[in-house]
Amino acid sequence: MNLHLTDIGSFVMSTLLGATPLILAAMGGVLSEKAGVVNIALEGFILAGAFIAVSAAHLFGGHGWVISSLMGILATVFLGLIMGMMHAFLTQRTRMDHVVSGLGINLLAMGATRYLYLHLYPNGVEVAGLDRRYFLVAALILPFLVQFLLVKTRFGLKLRACGEDPDSAVLAGVSVIPVRYVAVILSGILAALAGAYLTLGDAHNFSTDISAGKGYIALAAVIFGKWNPFGATGAALFFGFFYALQTRLQISSIVIHFWGIDLTNPFLMDTLPYLMTIIVLASFVGHTKPPAALGRQEVL
């Protein structure tokens, strides 16, 4: 196989683009989990964001791609906010188990998007979309913003305190629940934008399984990255690399057999990010410390 510079360039690009939705969602995951709220709901946020982005963009499809995409993004942000608020309400006000709430939100997103998609667009839907590179730039800047927010601002300090020890945070005068609301809402918006990338940026249409577990992978990236924005970005890039490799191997008819198993088979390649996640967690988690109060159902 001859590797040209352009090849390497396009490989890097497809790695970056593969990582883009993961980074967006993972930054949401970092914010939420640093504040102490487990966020399995990323998957549902992504799916809902993907759908609303395409529907709003389609609705304004006659006004040119700028207006259409802008409306798509705005609608995504709005829905992300609502869904984030929902997860915050369920986990903080009704004290639901964070995983249960997240699963419920994912099911809701799954059922509702499918229902609405079949109901509204029986013949499918197409949009002009938005250049993927806008999303990529956003995804590359975002980790720095999140890190700045967490370390340099008063709000970031409060957010970390809520994830480490909400009881003590209350005693220090922090209102824990509002802080967590903001964190989870931000995570809803960011993850929904990851969904917008999938439809507006990438596919230009919607399919009911478009999120394909990206929310879960993003959450794995958060843990893999030790709840640190840069770590999570690195993990997302790592997974992006595997996506790129997978695509590349599929195109290049290379076949690698090992004990009679076709390792380049798309199904087996597809297991890589999942297996890597498990392997990485099994070898790293012992040495990492999640936010101390992550997922706890405390009575404040």
Partner: peptide
Amino acid sequence: HFSLIPALSILENLMLSQLSGSILL
């Protein structure tokens, strides 16, 4: 049962308890 947050530094614990201040620490 002390209300200091173990994962934060002393200074961060103090700043956390500051009631007002600018957006930045």
